[in-house]
Write a protein that binds this DNA or RNA. Structure first.
Length: 734
RNA sequence: GCGCUCUUAGCUCAGUUGGUUAGAGCGUACGCUUCACACGCGUAAGGUCAUAGGUUCGAAUCCUAUAGAGCGCACCA
């Protein structure tokens, strides 16, 4: 027995050493596995992309969770002998990254991005992104992620940029990408548009005002937008207003004097809400915009990009919304036009990244049309997104998220893809006078590129195939696409998963992945979200340093049902550190007792077995019936655990293995072995020694996907070792 | 408003296609320096599976309703 077993298991010493050894072995790269015969060249593939972490800083517990789950699947399939690729990378995360650097700039130098200019800002962002990248890579290694570093990608590198330009051009040529004046979510704080999915609604208590508007009473929560309102809208079937005709003009007194209003009848009006009459502000409301479009009404901007009123507001021009509102109400009251005020609760739209209050604006932006028929497909992008999930070509786990997915698509509107920020893929469009060029800069003088950048999800939407070298017809693309599994948080089902399906169905004509495994949110022991302000963040590096990455991984995986939030505390992780030590001591016992019994047999008898195969029962000396029963019991468990992996129930597999190792192997089998080894029945001793080695070997194999380090470290000392690393040893068969 | 989920031991959660006496971890109580491990071992207590009804030979599991908790989407001017 190696002397190391005399000390308690020491993850801090073991883990970095083993990761380095694995990395040096090259086995993270499937090509190496084929080159040295570990994996047959014609083996079935298993491929998965790592959801690229944002280069905005450090990894958090949610990342640790995704790594634990994904590495478990990857190691399981690798041990199954598959040609296994887990492809890593990072995401430039345009808005998120730029806003971190901008905040820092403001704090350190009290400067805005306009003070230092586009080039200088980009330089600083790139530096920050590089630092974050390095931190993230080292954290991935600490967690034991068996990713193929030779294929690492970045959403903003050259290969990925080419994929972005290619898809953009194709979509433009197909009429699916268009530029137009449409109502968008404008973030006055970030000075950019954002997509519908980046809007966070927050409840706000406000006042609802009723004003006299000619013969009508209108209600509004936003009096400051009402300056330009010259259309008064009601439902065509509303009996209260049936004497008013569509298109009829009415002269009335309004905020800044007399105006002429036009009556519009539209069925979108809710007769039961307020007075059933409203005036519209098409420039600053999506609903109003739609009404205006339907009836071809004028649209006028009231509020500027900084949230200040424009000259149309007369005396209020240049005043911020929050200041202007009470003053405007006061003026209307003085004019006798205020009917009443009511307390009112509604949701205000805020920007996910900056917290700015969204002001809808009409802007000239780039959009992806989700309803237009895709040439050659006879279907819209919406339908292309629905179909593979509806027909189960893509399986979502847990499956009830399919309903959420469908519901989202039904409500989906055109996707605004242009952003007024500097970091990211620049919109690949060039202008010269009336001419426009798409995809790449044309020859000749005088072309200027569009100032905007693309929504970061445009490039991450291509991730499963851009990482494999598309649009070139690479071997990797041929071999590994579609990928087998996408594992990610359920909170980005729409942001990312849906967009990958859209982009892949469109650009490649296939599904991006066969299954989507959605994990939940990691919460603290009290069930609260982990956040900086609460100070309840657990740093995965701290936790792994204190208890070992194996322990952290187990704590994140055991009992963690997909789609459900997970509570975690240091105590929980500590429990699995104890488990790692338990395995260590099981090994010590087995090697001490069984090793002695079988000293010569293993070292001599097994050298002829081909590498990567497990000793079969037939090769072993005859086991006594009691020992055969133990072996059969583990066979049953092996079958169950394998089945669990195949059906994405790794949370059960991990729990069963924990229970088996501790309460069956250690508590029962080891205990009953003591009198056997102390006795003088030679056949029973040999049989039991043989059995214990087999059980330990197999238990380590089964646990390896969850606790790669401690299992590898023990396995290296086993006489049953039949490959250079457990990582590429064979999964037990029954 | 539309949609989804949850309610099981003191706590956190499993429970796969409906099938013996409903499980685990943590915690609790009591006892153990037992020669693998005190990062340990043994024993024990603890559940009308939210409530009401239904389907079934059989329900924690399927259906309906009610109550409570949470989440997503949309949004009202």
């Amino acid at each position: 027995m190696p002397e190391k077993f005399l000390q308690p298991y020491n993850p801090a010493e073991t883990e970095p050493r083993l990761y380095e050894a694995w990395e040096t072995s090259g086995y993270f790269n499937p090509d190496t596995c084929i080159a040295n015969g570990t994996t047959p060249a014609d083996a079935e593939t298993f491929s998965m992309v790592l959801p690229p972490p944002n280069v905005t800083g450090r990894l958090h517990m949610g990342h640790a969770l995704m790594l634990a789950i994904q590495d478990a699947f990857t190691r399981y399939h690798r041990m199954q002998g598959k040609r296994t690729l887990w492809l890593p990378g990072t995401d430039h995360a345009a808005i998120a990254t730029q806003s971190v650097v901008e905040k820092q700039l403001r704090k350190d130098e009290n400067k805005s991005r306009h003070d230092i200019g586009r080039d200088e800002l980009l330089k600083r962002i790139e530096q920050f992104a590089n630092e974050s990248h390095d931190t993230i890579v080292s954290q991935l290694k600490v967690m034991g992620a068996s990713v193929d570093w030779s294929r690492e990608a970045f959403t903003l590198d050259e290969v990925r940029s080419r994929a972005v330009r290619t898809v953009f051009k194709r979509m433009y040529d197909d009429g699916l990408i268009y530029r137009g004046h449409r109502i968008v979510n404008w973030d006055p704080k970030g000075q950019t548009t954002i997509s519908d999915d980046e809007v966070i609604y927050q409840e706000e208590k406000a006042t609802f005002y009723y004003f006299t508007y000619g013969p009508f009473t209108i209600g509004t929560a936003r009096p400051e937008t009402k300056f330009g309102d010259k259309y008064v809208v009601m439902h065509p079937d509303d009996p209260r207003y049936k004497e008013w005709k569509h298109g009829q003009h009415i002269d009335l007194e309004w905020i800044n004097g007399p105006i002429t209003a036009t009556v519009i009848k539209d069925t979108s009006i809710d007769m039961a809400f307020g007075t059933g009459v409203m005036t519209i502000t098409p420039w600053h409301s999506a609903v109003d915009f739609d009404i205006a479009e339907r009836h071809e009404l004028d649209k006028e901007q009231i509020i500027d990009e900084y949230g200040k009123l424009l000259p149309i507001a007369g005396e209020f021009a240049g005043v911020k919304i929050a200041e202007a509102r009470p003053k405007i109400v006061e003026k209307l009251r003085e004019k006798g036009l205020l009917v009443k005020e009511e307390p009112y609760t509604h949701n205000i739209a805020t920007a996910e990244r900056t917290g700015g209050i969204i002001e809808p604006q009409i802007k000239l932006q780039w959009f992806i049309d989700v309803n237009r028929e895709v040439p050659g497909h006879g279907k819209s992008l919406k339908e292309l997104m629905l179909e593979p999930v509806r027909t189960s070509k893509i399986r979502i786990i847990p499956d009830h998220f399919e309903k959420t997915y469908f519901h989202w698509i039904e409500n989906l509107r055109d996707w605004c893809i242009s952003r007024q920020i500097w970091y990211g893929h620049r919109v690949p469009v060039w202008y010269r006078g009336e001419s426009i060029a798409v995809g790449q800069e044309p020859e000749g003088e005088g072309w200027t590129q569009d100032e905007d950048t693309l929504d970061t999800w445009f490039s991450s939407g291509l991730w499963t195939f851009s990482t494999l070298g598309w649009p070139d017809p690479t071997n990797d693309f041929e071999t590994y696409h579609p990928t087998d599994l996408l594992e990610t948080g359920h909170d980005i089902l729409f942001f990312w998963v849906a967009r990958m399906i859209l982009m892949t169905e469109y650009a490649v004509g296939t599904i991006p992945f066969r299954a989507v495994y959605l994990h939940g949110l990691v919460r603290d022991a009290q069930g609260r979200k982990m956040s900086k302000s609460l100070g309840n963040n657990l740093d995965p590096l701290d936790v792994a340093g204190k208890f070992g990455a194996d322990a952290a991984r187990m704590a994140l995986v055991v009992g963690n049902t997909p789609g459900t939030d997970l509570r975690i505390s240091e105590d929980k992780v500590k429990g699995y550190k104890h488990f790692a030590n338990k395995l260590w001591n099981i090994a010590r016992f087995v090697l001490e007792n069984a090793g002695k019994e079988l000293a010569s047999e293993f070292s001599e008898g097994r050298k002829t077995r081909p590498s990567g195969t497990e000793p079969s029962v037939e090769e072993t000396p005859a086991l006594v019936p009691a020992d055969i029963a133990h072996l059969n019991a583990l066979n049953t468990l092996t079958a169950e655990v394998t089945e669990d992996f195949e059906n994405y129930r790794i949370y059960l597999a991990a729990e069963k293995l924990y229970h088996y190792a501790w309460h069956e192997l250690a508590d029962k089998i080891l205990e009953e072995s003591k009198p056997i080894f102390a006795g003088d029945d030679a056949a029973a001793k040999t049989s039991r020694a043989q059995l214990l080695l087999l059980l330990l070997d197999r238990t380590l194999r089964l646990l390896h996907p969850f606790m790669p380090f401690v299992t590898e470290e023990i396995w290296q000392s086993l006489p049953t070792k039949d490959a250079d690393y457990l990582m590429v040893a064979r999964w037990p068969r029954t």
